[in-house]
């Protein structure tokens, strides 16, 4: 007798979403060493990786927030499903309003969650990834404390990542209970490949437990 069951429908009925907010530094210093160009290329890599993985393409919900200019925080488009994600063309220049950008990210997460709840869609714990090569030029202390507290209440998982030597790792680290990581060289591409895989990883945490992440050694500087 054959061991193939004929005509079985194998389709996804689950509707699960994995929200991701990218909070990206577009201040003037991002022009040095063409960091902004590498970041834009990194976002294209993210697009390619997300779309190449059927689970990430279906589950991922992405929002990009840039900060720079005259203390400007800008939503680069609306929340999009990963399969429809088109990377924005980021331009660098001006200040580093990191506090306002992270406030915006926290608010966006909560409003996206309530939309998903009312639509009856289940979701994984949202991720905010903050990337910066400097330090804030606005008020950040209260927002950073709110980020930590949101994390402690399991509302969000914050990843703060410093780019290059000028990134203020102490301040970046104040936004997450896990502290900040520093990027090894300018490994934007490796970072975004890792991020795409983290979205669909089986990152189940017990209540009160920490979120398990894939190894970061492809892009992070290991502190000694």
């Amino acid at each position: 007798m054959s061991n193939i069951i004929p005509d079985v429908a194998l389709i996804d009925n689950s509707d699960e979403r994995a929200p991701l907010v990218l909070v990206l530094d577009c201040s003037g210093s991002m022009l040095d060493d063409n960091k902004i160009g590498l970041l834009n290329d990194g976002l294209k890599t993210l697009e390619k990786e997300l779309k190449a993985d059927p689970i990430a393409a279906r589950c991922g919900r992405v929002l990009v927030i840039s900060f720079g200019g005259d203390n400007d925080v800008e939503l680069m488009g609306d929340w999009t499903d990963a399969m429809d994600f088109t990377p924005p063309d980021l331009k660098a220049g001006g200040m580093t309003p990191m506090g306002a950008a992270m406030r915006c990210a926290l608010d966006e997460i909560e409003s996206q969650k309530s939309q998903m709840r009312s639509a009856g869609v289940s979701y994984k714990r949202p991720i905010i990834m903050l990337l910066s090569d400097g330090e804030p030029t606005d008020d950040w202390q209260q927002v950073a404390a709110d980020c930590k507290s949101a994390e402690a209440q399991h509302k969000v998982n914050v990843m703060a990542i410093g780019i290059g030597d000028q990134a203020n790792r102490d301040i970046l680290g104040a936004f997450s209970n896990k502290g900040a990581l520093n990027m090894k060289g300018l490994k934007f591409k490796e970072l975004f490949i890792w991020l795409s895989r983290s979205i669909q990883a089986v990152s189940r945490a017990a209540t009160g437990g920490t979120v398990q992440l894939n190894p970061v050694d492809s892009w992070a500087q290991i502190q000694t």
């Binding site: 699960e16 714990r125 399991h154 209540t207």
Partner: peptide
């Protein structure tokens, strides 16, 4: 609980 990737365990 709130998140689909979070649950309760026999060991809790």
């Amino acid at each position: 609980g709130e998140y689909s990737d979070q649950t309760y365990f026999v060991t809790d």
